[in-house]
Design a protein around this nucleic acid. Structure first.
Lengths: 143, 143
DNA sequence: ATTGTATCGGTTGTATACAATTTAATTGTT
DNA sequence: AACAATTAAATTGTATACAACCGATACAAT
């Protein structure tokens, strides 16, 4: 049908601006994160650990929508930088527990300015940002 | 300051749901795109070509927010599948023109159902989807 | 005409993402 | 206890993304 083909136009797709916008915003983080020697994926792992200090790979994955195939190399890299430790749980040897080092904890202070700098890069009004936020979480909620 | 550290919490970040939502939605496309033997990146290239039929790599990149480092292998892969041809422009030998084959054109019919199937996977009301769409493009507009 | 500059696409290197599989450890059932 | 089913993380393979760089072509200004 004609309407179906009309929906195939890029400008009629909701997914595309979502995909493009996410990529562009992550790209805007790079200069700020470079100063901390972190990638965006490493940064969001640190965000979780700054809140909770110790988490299993599985719990990190649930929180961040990432699986072990992505997390394992990221965590090894953060371990190599000295920001966290990886050790097996005593209670369940299958579980790998990730915990911040003092250096990883200390990095939080250096990261504190990043959200402010980033929001300065986003042209949305606070009300618009709030609406966007809530719509995105509504979508995420069903996954 | 305390407020700065508060902003570091994952739940206070706008970028994270954007990043996670984009990934999850693209992942939802996979079963539908598998039937066409396309990845999401290949799919959005085809979306542009179904609209315009012939484009340079540079123009494709501007439209899709992708550079030649990403597009070159994607376009070679689509050429290998027989969906498009790659040839240098006569007028300017630097420019590579990408054009659909008949098979690539024909694929459009098979793709026609995808947007409908995908919107069934998204729990937003039409009005919410429209708001999300316009906020995302507002952000993209400044990049 | 020549030379410096800009543009285009390709290549290289690094870092994700994710499906599928594998291995080790745990749990559930009989 | 024995064994099947489940779970957690790691590994493998494929496909992006993007920065940085490269080589060829085109353009600009003298």
């Amino acid at each position: 049908m004609m309407e179906d083909l009309e929906q195939l136009k890029l400008k009629n797709q909701l997914c595309f601006p979502l995909y493009a916008c996410a990529k562009e915003v992550v790209r805007r983080y790079r200069p700020f994160l470079d100063e901390l020697d972190l990638t965006y994926t490493q940064y969001i792992v640190m965000l979780v650990l700054w809140e909770e200090n110790e988490k299993s790979v599985h719990d990190l994955g649930e929180r961040l929508f990432l699986d072990s195939g992505t997390l394992t190399p990221v965590l090894k890299s953060l371990e190599a930088k000295g920001y966290l430790t990886r050790r097996r749980s005593k209670a369940d040897e299958r579980v790998l527990l990730v915990a911040l080092t003092d250096e990883g904890q200390a990095l939080k202070e250096s990261a504190a300015e990043i959200p402010k700098k980033m929001s300065a890069c986003v042209a949305l009004e606070p009300q618009e940002a709030a609406t966007l936020y809530s719509l995105l979480y509504k979508m995420l909620g069903q996954f």
